[in-house]
Amino acid sequence: MTTRRTVRAAGLVALAAAAALSLTAYQSGSSEASAAPVTKGSVSVTEAGAPVGSETLVDGSTAEITKLGDLHYRAEIVSDGAVVATMEADGRDAGLDANAMYVVLGVDGEIHSWTGGEHTGAGTHEIAGGWTAEVTKLGEQHYRADILDGEGAVVATMEADGKDAGLDANDSYIVLSTRGLISAHV
């Protein structure tokens, strides 16, 4: 019985060591430290990142911005000392409709917020920056917006599918929400 337990314990130690080496290899992509938990399978690890700074948003809350990698930033929106929302731009801009305050986090780590400029529902809407948005409902909490230039050509497509979408369109900032609301600001 003692031998069986010893072999089993040794097997568990070897498994734990292999998992630790695997996690170390996963984390070694950056030497910068942060406390952003990432779930890989059933294991939670810490994703490296470097604080970039903070910005005061239009509603008075603060966005704490962290660089996680090339074209990869996270913003934690803090109000009254508590994180009320987190958004991540990873290879594409991110957007958020936060109760009629709209926020875009770009893949360059810049963040912009505004209020107003809303259009609701499927249809064609003239939005700030001289763009036209053709919004289509694809399902419950699922909308797509084709962004058209002045000549009617599609220059970008946004999709809010269970999560709001954002876009920096040449310094015009656009948010499409899962409620079918689109807002833009220059």
Rank of each mutant, 00 (worst) to 15 (best):
M1F: 04
T2H: 05
T2V: 10
T2N: 08
T3F: 07
T3M: 03
R4V: 07
R4Y: 09
R5F: 10
R5K: 13
T6D: 15
V7A: 11
V7K: 13
V7W: 04
R8W: 12
R8G: 07
R8V: 05
A10T: 03
A10S: 11
G11N: 11
G11A: 11
V13M: 15
V13D: 13
A14K: 15
L15Y: 13
A17R: 08
A17T: 04
A20S: 07
L21N: 05
S22K: 13
L23H: 09
T24M: 12
Y26F: 15
Q27N: 12
Q27A: 14
Q27L: 05
G29N: 11
G29M: 09
S31N: 15
S31P: 14
E32A: 13
E32D: 14
A33K: 15
A35R: 11
A36I: 15
A36P: 04
A36C: 14
V38Y: 10
T39V: 11
G41M: 00
V43Q: 13
V43I: 11
V43M: 12
S44L: 03
V45P: 02
E47M: 02
E47T: 08
A48P: 02
G49R: 00
G49H: 00
G49V: 09
V52E: 04
G53L: 13
S54E: 07
S54V: 03
S54N: 10
E55Q: 14
E55L: 05
E55I: 13
T56S: 12
L57P: 10
V58Q: 11
G60L: 12
G60Y: 04
G60Q: 13
S61C: 08
I65R: 00
K67R: 15
K67W: 07
K67F: 06
G69T: 02
L71R: 10
L71K: 11
H72K: 12
H72V: 01
Y73W: 04
R74F: 05
R74H: 04
E76M: 07
I77N: 06
S79K: 15
D80E: 12
D80S: 12
G81T: 03
A82S: 14
A82W: 09
V83R: 04
V84A: 01
A85E: 10
D90I: 06
D90R: 09
R92K: 15
D93K: 01
A94W: 00
G95L: 02
G95Y: 00
L96P: 06
